[in-house]
């Protein structure tokens, strides 16, 4: 079982390595957010919390990037289906779960690598992270966010027949979730009707946890944050696993 998962994962790693340029190109967007919006707002407004806006924004951008990367890694299953490699794995004497776990780990690895690059760049830009002690919590949060959204991507991919469908999901589900997560602004500034959306959005708690571990700012209890993320991860793993097996 372990060997089977590793075989699937190894292939994902080789593919990731071959496309390492993509790791760099996909951080352009978060870099623009931090460099332009972060610095502009830093000086433009006084925020209702201690510390600068750039440090507030960085954890949000980190989560945003990981959500995008993780969900998109779900595409690889669709590509596998089109290119037939999935068939090669389906006739091999291995369990479906091994394929699923190996692919998930591949997506998680990619997302965490990207997160690490953004953290390094943020430090260079002068973001005040708490210090070494923030690393375990941040890694845990990154892991939970990417596991949840890779599984979400797999679930979506299992149901999708075209790339157009993927755009739909990104525009109608992922984008609203990110905009309503408090990744870009403190949620206490919102009108109350928008606050409902924020509270119902599971990603809010991922952003909050990341912000707590990274720079020590939070709006909710971090135990609640992590509980929501763990429940979300498990729910998406089960959904992704179920749909993937069925397809």
């Amino acid at each position: 079982m372990m060997g089977d998962v590793y075989a699937v994962y190894l292939r994902e790693l080789i593919r990731l390595w071959r496309q390492k340029v993509r790791l760099v190109t996909t951080i352009v967007m978060p870099l623009l957010w931090l460099g332009v919006i972060g610095n502009a707002f830093n000086n433009a407004f006084k925020m209702p919390f201690e510390g600068d806006f750039l440090s507030f924004l960085t954890p949000g951008i980190l989560v945003m990037t990981m959500v995008f990367t993780s969900t998109i890694s779900g595409i690889t299953t669709v590509f596998d289906r089109e290119f037939g490699f999935l068939k090669e794995m389906l006739v091999a004497p291995i369990k479906r779960e091994s394929i699923l776990i190996g692919k998930m780990l591949g997506g998680v690895t990619q997302a965490i690598l990207q997160g690490a690059i953004i953290i390094v760049l943020a430090i260079i830009m002068g973001v005040n992270f708490k210090g070494i002690e923030s690393i375990p919590g941040m890694v845990l949060t990154m892991f939970l966010v990417s596991v949840a959204f890779v599984s979400f991507g797999l679930a979506v991919a299992s149901k999708m027949t075209s790339m157009e469908g993927f755009q739909m999901v990104m525009n109608f589900l992922i984008q609203p979730m990110i905009f309503l997560s408090g990744a870009f602004y403190p949620t206490k500034m919102l009108p109350s009707w928008l606050k409902i959306g924020v509270k119902l959005n599971p990603l809010t708690y991922g952003v909050d946890a990341m912000r707590y571990f990274a720079v020590g700012i939070n709006e909710f209890n971090v135990v609640i944050d992590l509980t929501v993320m763990i429940v979300l991860s498990i729910a998406f793993i089960l959904l992704g696993g179920y749909l993937f097996r069925k397809s």
Partner: peptide, 28 residues
């Protein structure tokens, strides 16, 4: 069994050797 599908099923971002190696691993 071994099977060669009607539609291509190689990973074209891998080398020939890597395709075979992954296959060997999948078959223990």
């Amino acid at each position: 069994i071994g099977i060669v599908f009607q539609d291509p099923s190689l990973d074209d971002r891998l080398t020939a050797r890597e395709n075979l190696d992954i296959h060997g691993r999948l078959y223990h």
